[in-house]
Design a protein around this nucleic acid. Structure first.
Length: 405
RNA sequence: GGAGGAGUUCCCGAGUGGUCAAAGGGGGCGGACUGUAAAUCCGUUAGCUCAGCUUUCGAUGGUUCGAAUCCAUCCUCCUCCA
């Protein structure tokens, strides 16, 4: 079975520039391909994770991935599908973010012995000479054609600066540069990158007279078409400091029934037979599939130890009994004993404001040690702490363990 | 460069001197129902010492007993003309 078959079976691929040729190429040769990452945050999120998985599948099949950090292009900002212009980042921020990305990628991608490469397009983009670039690259781009590209459509209505309009040339040039430097012949990206990928492949064909290909990956969306990986707290990050392994686990534990199979296929390495079996479970049964999904994805991102801890904590809280050791914990200074419950919860970061806490209690959503709190003026005394800890439940499934420092 | 228009609470979007912490929708949160799911229904959604008070409608000043609403300046964005 070729990688393409694997990727297709698992539902990764959205479109190809040249379907048959790509299949043949990937079967016969070891190919160098690239995927771009915008270093606009200091961590990757679950949206990137699909891409990482595709990259990992490719590498396992013997191909060589290039992770391209868009240090140069981030200074421009990709207008595709965005309604707003992107804020500009400093070089220091970009470099910091790139370092974080690599650490996260190493969980899935083997960078040893040049089996995968990370490069930053700032290396060639930042020193370009404007006129040379226009004469060399600019000539090959037809504005008429660019204007018809899907990715500019929205922005043509809402406004597009010349700066951002150039993004496509930059990305196209990246592909050309990678082709020249590393023999990279394939670009992979999210489906929103289609126009940009085409631009690059075309450019290589024109400049070098050599074939170049592209393919796009499905964007991780729910069955309703909404982007996945968004929570009330924002994106679901791969960085444990930004999204704790427990929260990360819970996110996948709680996906919609209808998304389970898709997620298992895209986000784990489980064999497809198993994926289909789990995805076919009905009603209560599918909870088993969700546990597998949560465990597997957490294991890939945070490692086996963390995944086990998260699963144990969830089991203890929701399955009843068990070990509460790994439940998310915050601590309060002992001086707070005797204070009102709201002050304690604020200190422990369970609630963002007292107003919200008050509302929570009034609506009957706050439990301490599984007893509903009805009095706003409840004082937290030592008797609330069993074996040194107090279990707070906010709403139906939000647990916090509070200990005294 | 010229002429118009716009900037509202997490998002979209009403509001054009007091009854506005600001309609409506989305999202979020809480509750009911459940399977730690979805759908549905109900409540709620600036902060605080919650009776009351304080800060909020691009920014800064001003008019007024009183401004998101009027005036001035500035910033940002959009449209048309060049």
């Amino acid at each position: 079975m070729s990688v393409v078959d694997i990727l297709m079976e698992r539902g990764f691929i959205e479109q190809f520039t040249h379907e048959e040729e790509i299949k043949e190429l990937l079967e016969k040769e070891k190919v160098t391909f690239y995927i771009g990452f915008d270093p606009t945050a200091d961590s990757l999120h679950v949206g990137h994770f699909v891409t990482l998985m595709a990259m990992a599948h490719m590498q396992r099949a013997g191909h060589r991935p290039i992770a391209l950090i868009g240090g140069g292009t981030a200074m421009i900002g990709d207008p595709s599908g965005k309604t707003d212009m992107r804020k500009m980042l400093t070089r220091e921020e970009i470099e910091h973010n790139a370092r974080s990305f690599k650490k996260q990628m190493e969980k899935l991608i083997d960078f040893s012995d040049g089996k995968a490469i990370m490069v930053n397009n700032a290396d060639w983009l930042l020193n370009l000479n404007y006129v040379d670039f226009l004469r060399d690259i600019g000539v090959h781009f037809s504005v008429n054609r660019m204007l018809t590209a899907e990715c500019f459509k929205l922005r043509l209505e809402r406004g597009l600066s010349f700066l951002e309009f150039n993004y496509m040339l930059m990305q196209g040039y990246d592909f050309l540069e990678l082709n020249r430097r590393y023999g990279c012949v394939l670009q992979i990206g999210g489906n929103d990158q289609w126009s940009n990928i085409l631009a690059g492949a075309d450019l290589i064909r024109r400049k070098e007279g050599k074939p170049a290909y592209g393919l796009t990956l499905t964007l991780l969306t729910t069955s309703e078409g909404k982007k996945m990986g968004k929570t009330e707290k924002g994106a679901v990050w791969l960085d444990p400091e930004k999204t704790s392994p427990y929260d990360f686990y819970q996110y996948w534990r709680n996906v919609d029934d209808s998304d389970v199979e898709r997620c298992l296929a895209l986000l784990t390495f489980l064999p497809m037979d198993e994926v289909r079996r789990l995805g076919a479970l009905k009603d209560k049964e599918i909870n088993e599939a969700k546990k597998v999904l949560a465990y597997e994805v957490t294991k890939l991102v945070h490692g086996e130890t963390e995944a086990k801890k998260a699963a144990e904590a969830a089991e203890a809280l929701f399955g009843g009994g068990g070990n509460l050791e790994n439940v998310p914990t915050s601590s309060i200074p002992s001086g707070l004993l005797g204070s009102k419950i709201l002050d304690v919860l604020i200190e422990a970061n369970v609630i963002p404001s007292k107003s919200e806490g008050r509302r929570l209690i009034q609506q009957g959503g706050l439990y301490i040690n599984n007893e509903k709190i009805t009095d706003i003026d409840t004082e937290v005394t030592e008797s609330f702490f069993k074996e040194g800890m107090m279990l707070v439940r906010k709403g139906k499934k939000n647990y916090h363990k509070i200990i005294i420092e």
